[in-house]
Design a protein around this nucleic acid. Structure first.
Lengths: 277, 277
DNA sequence: TTGCTCCTCACGTCACGTGAGGTGGC
DNA sequence: TTGCTCCTCACGTCACGTGAGGTGGC
């Protein structure tokens, strides 16, 4: 029996041909414990694989063709059939999401490169007085942004209610860093208020200094990536042309508590500015 | 004027914020000549960028978000607007193609992982006598495969005609290596013949030795990746279960000159075999 | 003895991220 | 003097590809 088993073991070259994985890949998967050979000769270090390891090897190869990282493949392999299938489906759903974003980006780039007119934005400035705000800050990637905005707004309003203070203007989010797939902000959600409010777990009370800001109003459709780049770009170039300097992180001032129709005013894109010398 | 220009130059940190590119990325793009700073201080090595370089920088950043390689981005940047737009579209078309393949692969994997029945294949063997063939071999990736098959077949038939020989059986392709996006075969297209044929530029005349082969017949729909994996897998496991050894590269024997209906017999998937001892 | 297969480093690829250690101007 | 910004290495990441140099069995 062990005789028979030993005889049917495949050295790495044969196993490579049967599994369609390179020698280098097989050695790496061994090293990572992802696909250890059935036997390793202790003298020579030769790797010998069992024929029934071919199936696992091919599965790894196919998952790699989806560009699934090896760490994630390891997780798939630890699950039973139906759960593994769901894991693959979940991975692929993420991939499709990222493709959908890129598809919009391609459309945007084609429009820009061909020099077809970008949408027009009315940019103006306004003076904001010093203001008390309650705020919550978190590092979020793009997928977690919208839930965070809503959660933070609710928490802040609740905190004002508990403190006996009342909101004195529209809520806003300050983007201290970029928010996308690779970058996670941080994002600070603020609610301006009147009266006296207490800080709490995760809730800061601070003063937003008086400042002038350049802004433009956009619809919900224009607030999606990559269309939103045009709005940011419009405000930035407007300030640049007038010799203004951006003095703080950009912010979005929201008019609604949640959703609006795609073509209704949805928020202001605003940059604090000062006239350069 | 040069005064004004010099004053408006941005050091790398400011340019990084405006372009949304990391310092590391900006230094790399400088090194590669993709986005050299307007001025480099010869003493300190400090990089200074012109404000109008922001546009190019952002374009690079957006193209990178499509996962376009820097070499390809360089090409896009060398083109004028409309041509650049077409380059982006062409790149994206390739990406969509690769997504389409992966999408089918995901469906295939889900079926397999859930253990839903794989299609049944009738596998049998046949004895082939020694045969004269004319053949052409080339390293092709999956995108170039079908054109090569047709081109080679025409060339070989023409060569037989010129030699006064005549085809004596269906044409076939021998896959000496895997053919996919990363791997390029090689693939050998063969036409068996009777009579006497001359070699020519790229056309080899050789004898295919007598052998037994295990094979199954599939439709055109089953000949697509990844469905075709089932047919290959079926023949391989059939041979394995009967203690046969595969002795040469797998081959596909085509019944038609071009296309068939999706559910009609289209080709045989065949492996030369011998009974193991 | 020659070929073939296997072994283990070690370095390259691609597009950066992340320190380490140091300089320069306000 | 302290902080801030900038500089240049150098190494790490990820999943391998590609030798180099050497061993072992037929």
């Amino acid at each position: 029996m062990s005789q028979t088993t030993a005889e049917s073991l495949l050295p790495i070259g044969a196993f490579s041909r049967r599994s369609r994985l390179s020698l280098k890949a097989l050695r790496l998967y061994d090293e990572l414990g992802l696909l250890p050979p059935a036997r390793i000769d202790p003298e020579s270090g030769y790797r010998y694989y069992a024929p029934d390891q071919v199936e696992r090897a091919r599965l790894i190869g196919l998952l790699r063709r989806l560009d699934m990282p090896l760490a994630r493949i390891r997780r798939v392999l630890e699950l039973d059939g139906p759960a593994a299938s769901r894991e693959v489906a979940a991975f692929w759903a993420e991939a499709e999401e990222s493709v959908a974003v890129k598809r919009r980006l391609v459309a945007y780039l084609e429009r820009h490169l061909e020099g077809r007119g970008e949408p027009m934005f009315d940019v103006t400035t306004r003076e904001l007085p010093e203001q008390q705000v309650v705020s919550m800050t978190r590092a979020v990637h793009v997928g977690e942004l919208v839930p965070f905005l809503h959660e933070a707004r609710s928490t802040l309003l609740e905190q004002l209610r508990r403190s006996g203070a009342r909101p004195s203007g529209p809520w806003l989010a300050i983007y201290h860093g970029e928010v996308n797939e690779d970058s996670d902000g941080p994002v600070e959600v603020c609610v301006p208020f009147e009266g006296r409010a207490d800080a709490a777990d995760g809730v800061t009370v601070r003063t937003e200094p008086a400042h002038r800001e350049a802004f433009t109003t956009i619809t919900m459709a224009q607030c999606q990536f990559p269309a939103i780049l045009d709005a940011y770009g419009a405000v930035e170039s407007w300030t640049g042309q007038r010799g203004m300097e951006i003095t703080a992180s950009p912010r979005e001032v929201y008019f609604t508590d949640g959703d609006a129709a795609a073509d209704e005013p949805f928020c202001d894109i605003a940059f604090p500015v000062r006239q350069a010398l």
